[in-house]
Design a protein around this nucleic acid. Structure first.
Lengths: 191, 191
DNA sequence: TGATTTTCTTGCCTTTTGTCAAGTGAATTC
DNA sequence: GAATTCACTTGACAAAAGGCAAGAAAATCA
């Protein structure tokens, strides 16, 4: 049994399965590290990483029509990281996934994930629970972005994921919140 | 074999399984109709409907802090309709789902869905494909809403789901786009 | 250490969107 | 069919956010 305690704990928090099932699932994952600014996924590649992020901060981003980077989402410690479209549909990714800080965690490939999905009923429940959890998070984000001013969105981010404001540069946060750098800088000043 | 041709076609478009598997899955669904303005789900209930919408237009909405209705999402023909948090986590819903026009389709309950999930491998693939599909749609919506002006968001909706603009009242669309009724009315005028 | 680049802040002005309130017209009701 | 309600529009003004450019501060590099 390798040292995947945090992953086992994460699995047990996501779905009601036995500890030994959780440990067997965790066993299938492989340790990975990423340096600051290293990419987990480059656009136009087919993603093959389903990652549990144990330490660090990552982001996913793409380029808008003017060629500007738009940060779509941040990933914090103790969450899964994957580009769902590319990973599950086996198509080239439109987005990039990049480590903001040094990161470490455990990954499995698409092939490994499917083998588990077919062989281990407990993993099916885990897989579904993760999809449901991430889907809900995406919907919540939708709701939190619309019908709110930039200031409220910023305050919400401050309250829910302060590590992002600590570790990510202003321009990543600005594009994530849908405002310009200038506007975010001014918002900050008034708080 | 009842008349569920559109559902079978829908299933076959979502996941690569055999026609007979798709027909067996469709068999488990039950026909339902909803009158205009009728609710599929009221807030504070636990959702028990996983619905394939064959005809009509629906929306999901909740109330903001000022007690105003906020339309979160629209559901169009030939899509699935469910409140993921309440349905999968068996918790009371914070959202309402309501028919805008007269609607018809086919539903299954949580219990029925899980029985299929455990007994029919083809349904597992279907279930996962639906979650992936809806998750991607949610992410796309996120991306389409941020970093765009209200006018661009409106034009995008016009291009992608014109039936919404045809059948939903202005106030539903305005809150969905995150603007006031007045602003949407003015946007329309300039087009 | 000093030079260079990158990140962030700020001022000035414009555009977008919101607020509030009044008004029109259509649909519904009694 | 008059009254009421509902959906939408419009005007006048206010607030929020953006565009652009200059400059300060911080990080990186040589």
């Amino acid at each position: 049994m390798s040292n995947k305690k945090s992953l086992v704990t994460f699995i047990l928090n996501v779905v009601k399965i036995s500890k030994s099932d959780a440990e067997q699932i965790a066993e299938a994952f492989h340790f990975v590290e990423l340096k600051e600014k290293e990419f987990l996924l480059h656009e136009k590649q087919v993603s093959d990483d389903y990652l549990y992020l144990e330490n660090g901060l990552m982001r996913t981003f793409l380029y808008d029509l003017e060629g500007e980077e738009i940060t779509i989402d941040f990933f914090t410690e103790n969450n899964v990281v994957f580009e769902i479209t590319s990973f599950f549909n086996r198509v080239r990714s439109e987005a990039n996934i990049q480590a903001i800080t040094k990161c470490s965690g455990y990954r499995i490939s698409y092939k490994e994930l499917n083998a588990l999905f077919h062989d281990k009923p407990a993993f099916r429940d885990f897989g579904r629970a993760i999809l449901v959890k991430e889907f809900i998070a995406s919907q919540k984000r939708n709701y939190g972005m619309i019908n709110r001013t930039a200031k409220e969105r910023y305050q919400n981010l401050l309250a829910t994921k302060p590590q992002i404001l600590r570790d990510a540069p202003l321009k990543f946060i600005a594009s994530y919140l849908g405002v310009t750098d200038s506007t975010l800088s001014r918002l900050r000043k008034n708080l």
